[in-house]
Design a protein around this nucleic acid. Structure first.
Lengths: 240, 240
DNA sequence: AAGTGGTCTAGACCACGGC
DNA sequence: CCGTGGTCTAGACCACTTC
């Protein structure tokens, strides 16, 4: 037979979706036990291996924890450490909406140092998007994104006021971002930055310079972020 | 039958061990193709599902990459970013020697906020070790470590001038540190810090507050580090 | 078309945990 | 003891890549 993919999707995905929904809706809380492999197999009319696949895969994602001889339990919600997330995604994960104001747009700047970081010839045209990030109508960060202009024609557009660059890149240009190397240090606000963030000149700022890579390890975006101290702390988990 | 666990171990582990050895010995190099599921099944006289399990599990570990329709390939070796390292270890990994000067030692301070971070009663005695970190005889960081005084008697000793706290904890107290959560932001130098680091008051500093956990997830050390901007940048890799 | 990984079946026995 | 997850079989068909 095998033709059990009735509505399209795979059986193990359907089973996962059911469990996920029960967790998201609060019907299942952390520590609660999930149906056993055998129960799931009966309920969804699949073989044991398929039910097992569904649970093992959820465990790999950290959604549930499996205890040999005991059962499968809802895992405590994970804190997303060290995840490469756009500002929009970070805000969404805290239940806040992302607001930003574009303060500079260009698609033909040049900057030899930044071009070098993106592995481009030094005279390459760069698309630049500079935005002030806001929380509660209060500006707390100035973010400047640099991309190869020729590779992303039309990216420097006012539509980014609401959307996320990550999203646009992934949806409209088919680019998947996979990881970023970051340099972090402290600096202080220059004239323009202090005006844009409504802070005194010389206020200490956290500076984060990210080189974001697409799949296959191609450097794709360079982002310089300046964050008001106090308003923003970076969280990192490191392992020994 | 099922009785194929001849020598004890599981079949899929044996298959993995064979592949691992070929990679470690250099017979298989990154990018090289590994035997297909069907080949492995024949070679090791197991079912397809078992061969599959062996490969899927190696892929989950990042040892190999699987490409649908193409094959299974040896993955490039992983770079160890975001490693929890002591200052001493960081310097050593760059071929430099760690130098530091102890500017404050105590084994009976109290600080309710820090005690709380270490999951201790708020009046608990804290051992405090404050050191100025130097590179080329130039001070570039002020680091303050807080530990539960009762748990580490005698830790606040001048012998730390040359040694690393990590090392002492692991060797003399049998504590294994496993991971740390960090908060990073920017601040500026107060009076005492500016004197200790020989910088003007108000100079922007990178502030890193680490809560370091031992195995079993017990918070063990709280470290506040203040780093001169320019002299020190933090490198992080994050993944999507 | 041939070969690959991905999903799936309908069972089996083993190893572990809690009662 | 019973129920749990963990390993395993001997196949099948589907989805994808490469030639």
């Amino acid at each position: 037979m095998s033709g059990n993919h009735r509505n399209g999707q795979y059986a193990y995905r359907r089973i996962q979706a059911v469990i996920r929904k029960r967790i998201e809706s609060g019907k299942l809380r952390p520590g609660d036990i999930v149906e056993s492999e055998r129960e799931l197999a009966k309920i969804h009319k699949v073989s044991l291996m398929t039910a097992r696949h569904a649970l093992a895969d959820l465990a790999r994602e950290g959604i549930v924890e499996r205890k040999h001889g005991a059962g499968t339990f809802v895992a405590p919600p994970k804190i997303h450490f060290n995840k490469l997330m756009s500002y929009t995604e970070q805000m969404a994960s805290r239940g806040l909406s992302a607001r930003s104001k574009i303060v500079h747009l260009s698609s033909s700047e040049t900057d030899p140092e930044i071009a070098a970081r993106l592995s481009l010839p030094s005279a390459s045209a760069l698309a630049v998007v500079q935005r002030v990030r806001q929380a509660d109508d209060e500006p707390f960060a100035l973010e400047t994104c640099y991309l190869p202009a020729h590779q992303f024609p039309g990216i420097a557009s006012p539509s980014l006021e609401r959307g996320s660059i990550f999203g646009v890149l992934e949806r409209e240009y088919g680019v998947n971002l996979t990881y970023a190397d970051e340099e972090i240090d402290a600096t202080d606000a220059d004239q323009r930055t202090s005006e844009l963030l409504s802070i005194p000149r010389g206020t200490p700022l956290l500076r984060m310079r990210q080189l974001i890579y697409s799949s296959k390890g191609i450097p794709t975006i360079y982002v310089v972020g300046l964050y008001r101290s106090g308003r923003h702390t970076l969280l990192i988990r490191r392992f020994r």
